[in-house]
Structure formats: structure tokens, C-alpha cells
Design a protein around this nucleic acid. Structure first.
Length: 420
DNA sequence: TCTCCGATTAGAC
DNA sequence: CTAACGGTCTAATCGGAGA
């Protein structure tokens, strides 16, 4: 039986989330900006039509925005994560075999579903009705073809938001794939596209029928798998359980450049608190920490300094206070006065489940006391993030990111509910 | 020559 | 008035160091 893998993808997700609570923004060009109000990361159709590019720095769009009245909003992750959970929960009801692939995408294995066509339309309608988020459904025999089918569903209004590649004859497949540029394929980005073009591979069909051994030799195993997936041979499994993170990074660009060591340390304590909270949330500890500072890489006129230091810990930990002592020390070591720092962060590595680690032959293992961090997590969960802080964490102003256009957290903050 | 490991590359969203 | 360009994550591959 041909597998029926559906890829459900939310349309212009962040913009759609904003519109759920601001219906007046329908038919208006809207974009959502990245952290620090830096780049465009989500665009309404109207904004796309005006020529705003994905990932474009916002300051480059300012003139266009003023001419056409494009509304720009800071990203509101609490809102998007909450609406995402609601969408995923609805999709999960359609099959126990599903994979939440990203904040706005979910693979759903619908193999064996009777009346598949009706069910896919119903699924789409239900998500729209229950959450207000419009989605498109692409179906194919493999994840890669499901992705491609989704692209078609999004692009062709005739599909009414659902497209099943499995319904096509071989001749129809050939014709369709010949009309799609190879860069649309999942796993083929800008660079590989350019290199493929040098080999005369321009369309999806070209890639599908390319000489496999040459492809493998020139482009590696990843693209070979992609090719097989395009041929209907599944090489990429559905990941039903979310694996633990192998690295956890917490970093931010600053709203203004920073020259002061105390301010950098303050920012770092925030990043440490954030990273360690994620670490504890997945029940792990880490035995490698890397701390880094960055100057503004876009300012060629200013001196650049991008130091980092990686430190193996004597004993794995997930204690924010322990990590903060090391991080604080490392920031002090890396800091050189006279530079305009634009970004800093921490990475945790060598991550293992708590209770699984290589004991030292010579040093006795120190008992770990988790009570303080348990209490801290409990209070922050109950009374909101940042109720209990680590070190100075945020006391110094001047590094926090710009977020001048953020909407209220309608679904996660009682105070944000509008009074009608 | 082989193995290991950190750095780099490429991709996704 | 001027400057203003994101954050996390994974896997594969490269290339140097040391065995």
C-alpha cells in the first residue's frame, strides 16, 4: 500500500496568529519581525505582493513600508507557541503517527484512512474553525514529496488548500515536477541549487532522474536520500518522539551596543538562566560550556572581536548558579575594553540524561542537591518567567533587545485580554 | 595511514 | 538625528593533529 504522508503547514504563521486577535489586519499588508526587530520573518500575502523578501532587514523595507502602509509587528513567541500547540493537538487526533516538525508544520501519517480526500479537507477546515489559523495540506508517499505537494497546495488556489501527489499518474508526475524549480525541494537550498545548475539540473524532475552515483559522489549522501525520496522511496523516517537536544544555545543581539563588562555579565546571567532552565526541562545535565562575545559583523568600519572559550566542567551540572559562576568568570576573561559588543551567549554541550555520566576514577562524586533549582523552576512556572532570577539577571538596562511593536500576549497573560 | 575531533558548511524554519 | 541585518538546531564533511 502506498504510504499517505500528509504535511500540514500553517499559512504565513506568525502573521496569521496576529490576525486571530486583530481581524482588522485582514487584507492589510503585515509583517512580523525577528528578535530585536531586525529582519522580516513572516509576511502576509499583501506584503509578499509588495516585494518584501523573507529575511530582509527591516530598515531596508522602511521606505516601501511607509509608501504602502505596511504594518510591522515584533515577534510574540508566547502567542505563537500557544496557538501552535492548539493546531498540533487538533492534527494529532487524525493519526497517532505524527511528527511536530516545527512551530507551524506537522507530518501526519494518514495511510489507510478511508475517504482520504474528504478527511484531508475536513482536517483543514477544523483547524481553521477551531483556531483561526489557515493551513494547507500536501500528501505524498514520502516526507519530501509531501512537502512538495504542500508547496503546490499553497501556490495553486484551484487546489483549495489540499493536494495529493499520490493521485497523479506517472505522466502527470513527470509533467508537474518539470515545472517546479529544484530549489523548492526540501533539503535543496541556495548553494546546492547553484551547484546543481552547473550540472544542468534545474527542475525537480531533473533531480529525480539524475545519475545516482554521480549525484552521490558530487553532493553527498544527503542529496542521494532526497533523490530517492523524490522517487517515492522513503529514506527519512517519521520522528514521533522528540529527541533530547544535544546542544542548548541561549544568545541575543543587544538593542544597543555594550562597552561595559558589568552589563555583559548581567546579560550573560540571563542567558545562563534560560539555557539551564531548558536543560532541566528535558531532564539533562551538561559537562561542556562555551561562552562567546560578538561585535557587530556588519560594521566593517569598526574593529571586530569575536572571542569564545570552551570549558569542560569537572562534573556535569544543570544548576544555574554553578553554570553562572563559570560563565561570569569566562566573560571576565574574554572581555577586552574598547570594543562595541553587539551580541553574547552561552552554549551547553556534552548533554546527557541526569544520572547517566562517566564518574571520575579518582575524585569522589559530589552529591547534587536539586532542591533549589526545583523550587526556582516551580516558582517561575507558577508565577511567570523571571519571578526568581539568577544573579543580577536583567538589573542592568541597555542590552535588552528592541521590541517596539509587540502585540499583547492574548492567550497567556490575563492582563492582556482586551475589555470589550 | 588511520582515527579522532573541532571547525566549517549546508539546510531548515 | 542617526543607525538600524535573528536564533536554534542537526548532520555531513573537511582538514589538521596525534597515534
Amino acid at each position: 500500500m502506498t504510504p499517505q504522508i500528509a504535511l500540514v503547514d500553517c499559512n504565513n504563521f506568525y502573521v496569521s496568529c496576529e490576525r486571530v486577535f486583530r481581524p482588522d489586519l485582514k487584507n492589510v499588508p503585515v509583517v512580523v519581525l525577528s528578535n530585536n526587530d531586525g529582519c522580516v520573518v513572516s509576511r502576509s500575502n499583501e506584503a509578499k505582493d509588495l516585494g518584501v523578501k523573507m529575511g530582509q532587514p527591516w530598515f531596508e523595507c522602511k521606505a516601501l513600508a511607509e509608501t504602502h502602509g505596511i504594518l510591522a509587528l515584533s515577534s510574540n513567541y508566547a502567542l505563537y507557541a500557544d496557538l501552535s500547540n492548539r493546531v498540533m493537538s487538533i492534527l494529532g487526533d487524525y493519526s497517532p503517527r505524527h511528527e511536530v516538525y516545527s512551530i507551524d508544520e506537522c507530518f501526519v501519517d494518514l495511510t489507510g484512512t478511508p475517504k482520504l480526500r474528504d478527511v484531508s479537507y475536513a482536517m483543514r477546515e477544523r483547524v481553521i474553525a477551531w483556531t483561526g489559523i489557515p493551513v494547507c495540506v500536501g500528501i505524498g508517499p514520502t516526507k519530501t514529496l509531501a512537502k512538495l505537494a504542500n508547496h503546490i497546495a499553497k501556490k495553486h488556489p484551484r487546489s483549495k488548500g489540499v493536494f495529493n501527489y499520490n493521485d497523479l499518474t506517472q505522466a502527470q508526475q513527470d509533467k508537474l515536477l518539470n515545472q517546479i524549480e529544484v530549489g523548492e525541494v526540501w533539503g535543496v537550498g541556495r548553494r546546492i541549487s547553484a551547484r546543481l545548475a552547473e550540472h544542468g539540473i534545474h527542475t525537480v524532475q531533473h533531480l529525480r532522474i539524475a545519475h545516482a552515483a554521480t549525484l552521490r559522489a558530487e553532493f553527498g549522501v544527503v542529496l542521494e536520500k532526497t533523490q530517492r525520496e523524490l522517487q517515492g522511496m522513503a529514506c527519512i523516517d517519521l520522528q514521533e518522539v522528540v529527541p533530547d537536544k544535544q546542544h542548548i544555545v541561549s544568545s541575543r543581539s543587544f538593542g544597543h551596543t555594550v562597552r561595559d563588562l558589568a552589563v555583559l555579565k548581567d546579560a550573560m546571567s540571563t542567558f545562563v538562566a534560560n539555557a539551564c532552565a531548558k536543560l532541566r526541562a528535558q531532564g539533562s545535565h551538561a559537562s561542556l560550556i562555551q561562552v562567546f562575545l560578538r561585535t557587530n559583523r556588519f560594521r566593517n568600519d569598526l574593529p571586530q572581536y569575536n572571542p569564545s572559550f570552551t570549558l569542560p566542567l569537572p562534573q556535569p551540572t544543570n544548576d544555574s548558579l554553578v553554570v553562572n559562576r563559570w560563565a561570569d568568570y569566562l566573560v571576565g576573561r574574554l572581555f577586552k575594553p574598547g570594543y562595541d559588543y553587539k551580541k553574547a551567549g552561552i552554549m551547553l554541550g556534552e548533554i546527557r540524561p541526569v544520572g547517566q555520566y562517566q564518574a571520575d576514577w579518582l575524585e569522589p562524586t559530589q552529591a547534587t542537591d536539586t532542591r533549589l533549582m526545583d523550587a526556582l523552576d516551580g516558582l517561575n512556572r507558577r508565577f511567570g518567567r523571571g519571578t526568581v532570577k539568577v544573579s543580577t539577571q536583567g538589573a542592568h538596562q541597555g542590552w535588552q533587545m528592541r521590541q517596539e511593536r509587540k502585540s499583547p500576549s492574548y492567550t497567556t497573560d490575563w492582563g492582556a485580554i482586551p475589555v470589550i
